[in-house]
């Protein structure tokens, strides 16, 4: 360790850094302090809460898998294949990152709603998406996919293309290079992208409540349950938030090896 070998860090950097940590941690600590620990287990064991937790977990996982299936090929195309309009595509797929989630929800309604561009023909076939868990997964995928694509594209770009060339010289076709070289080498980045996307799904609120609605057991995910409870019973909302916080910490622990581990190297 080269601990302070270059001299003491200056106060004008230490102070804002400390404030940044305080800004991020004080609210979280207050949330924990405010938690109704006496009734915590009882509250969390309530069927509505368990429903919301289960729904959140499986829809986020489904969205993660959808991101993998759809997003990995897209990230690969963006990172490895030159085609006209590539930078435009890259910009467009990241738009949902800056879109207010509620607007994302409205956009999803105009596409997959009962009278939407895709939704109306689907309705003819007897399929309606809003107010279903499918809608939750679509909303989650919509917001998580850009995270995944950006993160994986970055990972692919960081992985040397030299190996792709070596594989080509050795006779591997493009698909085989993707499967046997590119993906294994970018695997840590892909895993990080999956975790990021999953975490994003788990915290998703605006698009879900707008597009999928809010009904316990069907479309009421943890954040929706927290928001609903917030209207009347803050302690219950805090209890649920604690669960979300716990899940975030676990996710970060999973990412630790990759992010903090690499930074320390």
């Amino acid at each position: 360790m080269s601990r302070n070998r270059l001299g003491r860090p200056p106060a004008y950097l230490l102070l804002p850094a400390g404030l940044a940590v305080a800004l991020l941690l004080v609210p979280l600590a207050s949330l924990v302090a405010r938690a109704p620990f006496g009734s915590l287990l009882e509250r969390l064991a309530a069927p509505e809460v368990l429903d919301a937790l289960w729904l959140s977990l499986w829809t986020a996982t489904a969205a993660m898998l959808a991101s993998l299936v759809l997003g990995l090929p897209l990230a690969w195309l963006l990172a490895r294949v030159e085609f006209p309009g590539r930078s435009l595509v890259r910009t467009l797929v990241t738009v949902p990152l800056v879109l207010p989630p509620v607007v994302a929800g409205v956009a999803l309604l105009t596409a997959f709603g009962r009278t939407g561009v895709v939704g109306a023909p689907l309705r003819e076939l007897g399929v309606t998406i809003p107010f279903t868990s499918t809608a939750v997964v679509i909303a989650h995928t919509f917001v998580a996919l850009p995270f995944f694509v950006i993160s994986v594209e970055g990972a692919l770009r960081a992985t040397s293309q030299d190996y792709d060339e070596v594989a080509a010289v050795l006779g591997a076709r493009r698909g085989a290079i993707f499967r046997r070289v590119t993906v294994p080498l970018a695997a840590p980045g892909i895993a990080a992208g999956l975790v990021l996307g999953w975490a994003r799904s788990l915290g998703e609120f605006g698009a879900t409540i707008t597009f999928a609605g809010n009904y316990p057991g069907v479309t009421q995910t943890m954040p929706l349950a927290v928001y609903t409870l917030l209207q009347e019973d803050l302690e219950a909302a805090v209890a649920l938030s604690l669960v979300m916080l716990l899940v975030s910490v676990v996710v970060l622990a999973l990412l630790r090896e990759r992010w903090f581990g690499q930074a320390a190297r």
């Binding site: 030299d162 594989a167 006779g171």
Partner: peptide, 20 residues
Amino acid sequence: LTPQERGIGMVFQQHLLFPH
């Protein structure tokens, strides 16, 4: 012809063995 079609062998300064 693509590299795959040429039937060549290549050795690099940094061996570039697949790390995985």
